[in-house]
Design a protein around this nucleic acid. Structure first.
Lengths: 336, 336
DNA sequence: AGCATTTATGAAAGCGCTTTCATAAATACC
DNA sequence: GGTATTTATGAAAGCGCTTTCATAAATGCT
């Protein structure tokens, strides 16, 4: 392992100068810098990151804590998000370290990671309303960015999509088409995204009576989608709004089992999870969707983390990405 | 931040003794150890991991490099695997660090991570036959465990499932039921798991003519499953063997579109990816599957990494987990 | 009792960097 | 040409641990 010492001796320079040259300090002369750079390349020198971290007091890494509860893990988009995040951070030579939380919502794990100097900050995923993790990190003064939002009027940094707008718009479309009985198949009711979508849905309904618009808020599985849709159809629903493509998958099966047809008898709009391997073209009628690329969330959050480290105020780092409504064949006026 | 120095001064002991007490060395007297432990708890002391790593020369972390190619990321099981791995490693106070590979298969990234002392070893995912990453890490003497296998006669540590046996057994079942035209819907032909499954399939066919058993090896998406199944049905296939539940999903749609019914007209066996949110009960006929829990893979690999670090020989750490064949309604004799 | 061990602790070096402070050389100024 | 300044480099301290080596106290043995 080539160390700074080896390298500096080889160059006949002090470690200080070599270090400065490598880290781009201005006080080193251009030709010395070039010599150092060349030698570093030739010897394939890699600064030891533990040593650097110890010296600088910065970890150069961000953490993400995986929830211990099994059902929270059912996130088929996790790899896409992580890929966006990791790749973007790698550009700035930052690592992503994964942790596992055992106890409760994991606040202790966050603290442990931070105090041990393993990470400089965190990404919080799957926030609940008034998520205790956010409050806790705030109290401890640990930087973090939320993927989603942890409260209605967040003061923290976050990247979210316009869940409210997307579902309002989708609902308005269904209403405009003439649907009067619309069902919402949503995610867990404490998840902020689900809350926002529900509110968008309700806003989009305008004056439609609530009794005609059943709302189901469960885990977003195919089976749950099936059950909810059966019930909705029995109640006379002609349109469905699904929070995930897995719910939509179950919905389609239920529609089919009821001898009906997507697009013709029942309209369906789905939030496009962009689930790799299962596109919205895989449905019997191409699905109308609300769409937002998950990979970009990872990338944007990477940028926010870096900004936080350079002193940016958390509440100046808040982005709500627009969601596109893509019209396809699964939305039509209700049968006469 | 309470440091060892603070803690030792507070106790009136040397840093050496405190360190030894904390790390469970036997040479410290029981009552001193207890005093130290109590004080550490009281002051909520967390050893700085960079310092420890620098002193010990061990990173206490393992790496996993995410592929840059988009299509390799379409792994809906990633989060499950990661969860198993991370949780098990967390028990031994080990971290998981994620990296992104930009160049080619990423060999340079592995080397960079290792040389910089960020990790002590790696988990290799999605191995191809004679995967260059494995050869590279071997050459550099960097410890690693493969999730899957990187060659036919691996000398490295690995955890794999019995893909060959599973698909042979599944095929034999179909043959025993009387099927003569069986199609295989497989993954990418260079992926070792796909190779093993193909061979298992061929072995299970016994003497059946190859011409009656079309093999498709593509990305494992719903759309690909649909296309392959259409073609297979046109060629007269009465049974399908799918490498992933997404392929099976597409297969079902194609079967339906052809006016046929799963279980009655066409038999289907699927390798149960255990994809969260989409169970094999979500099909029109409950699916016969070959099953192996992915989470356990992560846990087993965590154990192997630790074993490697304590000097175990890589070729003594090789596990091939059995795959269970679960019979359900999707497999029946072909129509007369 | 007297010497050889064993047991418990401390002093200090070292892990590989960064960074402050001091210093020497080069340039500027009047 | 002499002093003030800027520029380029080095010496050394320090980041917070672990671990070797030395040492003092306690115990064992005859």
């Amino acid at each position: 392992m080539t160390s700074l010492k080896t390298l500096s001796e080889h160059l006949g320079l002090s470690q200080a100068t070599v270090s400065r040259a490598l880290n781009g300090y201005s006080t080193v002369s251009p030709k010395t810098r070039q010599r150092v750079l060349d030698a570093a390349r030739a010897l394939d020198y890699r600064p030891n990151s533990s040593a650097r971290r110890l010296a600088t007091g910065r970890a150069g890494a961000y953490g993400m804590i995986l929830p211990s509860e099994r059902h929270l893990l059912l996130d088929p988009l996790f790899s896409d998000f992580m890929s966006g995040l990791t790749e973007e951070l790698a550009r700035q030579e930052r690592d992503v370290v994964l942790g596992a939380s055992f106890e409760g919502f994991g606040a202790a794990t966050y603290e442990r990671f931070s105090r041990a100097g393993k990470v400089d900050g965190f990404v919080l995923g799957q926030p609940l309303l008034d998520d205790p993790r956010a409050a806790h990190l705030d109290r401890l003064g640990i930087p973090f960015v939320v993927h989603g939002r942890a409260s209605r009027a967040p003061t923290h940094a976050f990247y979210d999509i316009d869940n409210h707008g997307a579902f309002r718009q989708a609902t308005e479309l269904l209403v405009a088409l003439g649907h009067r009985r619309i069902a919402l198949l949503n995610g867990h009711p404490e998840a902020v995204f689900a809350i926002m979508r529900r509110e968008g849905f309700l806003d989009g309904l305008g004056g439609l009576p609530r009794a005609q618009t059943p709302i189901t808020e469960t885990e977003m599985t195919e089976a749950a989608g099936y059950r909810a849709t059966r019930a909705a159809l029995e109640a006379g629903a002609t349109a469905l709004l699904c929070s995930s493509i897995l719910l939509a998958l179950g919905a389609e099966r239920a529609v089919r089992d009821a001898g009906q047809e997507l697009g013709r008898d029942v309209s369906l709009i789905c939030h496009d999870d962009d689930l790799s391997g299962l596109s919205t073209a895989s449905f019997s009628a191409p699905l109308t969707v609300t769409r937002a690329p998950i990979r970009e969330a990872g990338q944007a959050i990477a940028g926010m983390l870096e900004a936080l480290m350079t002193g940016a105020a958390p509440d100046s780092l808040q982005e709500i990405a627009p969601v596109e409504l893509v019209l396809r064949a699964s939305t039509r006026p209700p049968p006469a």
